[in-house]
Design a protein around this nucleic acid. Structure first.
Lengths: 245, 245
DNA sequence: CGTGGCGTTGAACTACGTCAATGCATGTGG
DNA sequence: CCACATGCATTGACGTAGTTCAACGCCACG
């Protein structure tokens, strides 16, 4: 009865990696089928831009895999990254005029994109989807507010420690846990991008990382690789490191 | 047919000051009547706490009037104010376990509170309300992200300028516009609280304010009063002040 | 008229930013 | 395989915005 139309460029929602984690969780098969036809998969290369800050809001999307950054700019061109988006995160601004932030893929990524117009209409007529979206937005608001604390009240060391811990956590599908709770992962961001996330400069990021390395908290086997050696100690630094004499 | 049960401690939604601005806008009379019976008005004195960070999420609320602060704390007890809530803003965490931030009234305030459980259930069965809540949450997320830019990338002068302009804007019901676009209003926050909002110290706030006063941008007729004398100039400072020699 | 909160002001310190040199990979062309 | 160019990362030296510490002023309130 359904699914004769080729959905999502040949990739059905049923088989989607984030089927049960994204906002499309809880949808019935027939609803999913409709959504299936509205959206399409899109592969992004690292560095590719999906949404531009201030443009008309024409697209919304779900992250299937990869890491993307949400960012905005100050009057004088300094960038502030507003957050990172991982698998099953939602991107874009439904029910709004303009996209409030730019979205760029940091790694190669897959997203499931919708015309905002179509998506809005579908959402308005499918309360279960809208409810999912609401829950996700509320959670995102919580997450964003926790970042405010980081930006407003933490020093460079705490910021870096937090950043590494959160990244390790968000990536734990990808990263390999060796014995002794060592966690190794690939950094999806350059030093400059880390600086933009944390409201620091590239030099401060670099200095803090090498300091943590020298202190044995982490290892930096390559530019884009990090290993967390002392998870607990790193948590202490994130919490409130008092570096007295 | 409806409204025999005394609603909201004798105050019906129909007559509510924020009837058409809060999430209850767009509700039909009969829906509103149900909501009416679920909620109750509560008056708060300045300084009174409505929600505590980390507690079980039992209440949600709408701000009717007054100014409240949302805040969280670092491990070492420093406070970061996550935002201010004005009339028709929504407070609390529906569909969640714990309240992610503390809420305290800065001025005397009136709120319309609901048991989270009741509210959640009503929302889930009334898509129009849930849609309103979604729109509001999305807007709040946008607003929060703009604050991140402020916290992460602005200097003290810009932060203060932004703060005063936003406050003047949010309070424009209350504040008196004299000729020459002068805007006078009462500060709902102490210097310490302003510092907590902006991620600064009380001394820096004080110094910046007196500097702006000396430069003729604002006047400070009393501790808790501000007059904006040169609105445009203040906007320039907020945007990107290059203070060269 | 004292007492206790805020707020302001000053002086010294410091974490981070800025500027500039150097290091270290990866790629390209001889 | 080497020379060298290019782009990111590291490291150092120095400057400064904002913090910290401390004294003092102002005003409300008993």
């Amino acid at each position: 009865m359904n699914a004769i139309v080729p959905p999502l460029s040949g990739m059905a929602c049923d088989a989607c990696a984030i089927r049960n984690r994204a906002i499309c969780a809880d949808l019935r098969a027939d609803e999913l089928d409709i959504l299936n036809r509205l959206g399409r998969r899109r592969r992004l290369r690292g560095g590719e831009q999906l949404l531009w800050e201030g443009e008309e809001a024409v697209l919304v999307a779900n992250v299937v895999d990869g890491v993307l950054k949400l960012s905005t700019q100050t009057g004088d061109g300094k960038e502030q990254i507003l957050g990172l988006a991982y698998h099953s995160d939602f991107l874009g601004r439904p029910f709004g005029e303009t996209t409030p932030y730019g979205v760029e893929a940091l790694t190669d990524a897959t997203v499931c994109v919708f015309q905002q117009r179509d998506f809005d209409q579908f959402a308005r007529t499918h309360p279960r989807l809208e409810h999912k979206l609401l829950e996700r937005t509320l959670a995102e608001l919580d997450r964003t507010r926790r970042w405010m604390l980081l930006l407003g009240r933490m020093n460079a060391e705490q910021k870096l420690a937090h950043f590494l811990l959160e990244l390790a956590d968000s990536l734990d599908q990808t990263c390999s846990k060796t014995q002794d709770a060592h966690v190794a992962f690939n950094l999806p961001l350059s030093r400059q991008q880390i600086a933009d996330v944390l409201g620091l400069t590239i030099e401060t990021v670099s200095r803090q990382l090498t300091r943590m390395r020298k202190e044995g908290l982490i290892d930096l086997p390559a530019r884009r690789k990090v290993t967390i050696l002392q998870h607990r100690a790193l948590e202490d630094r994130a919490g409130m490191a008092v570096q007295n004499g």
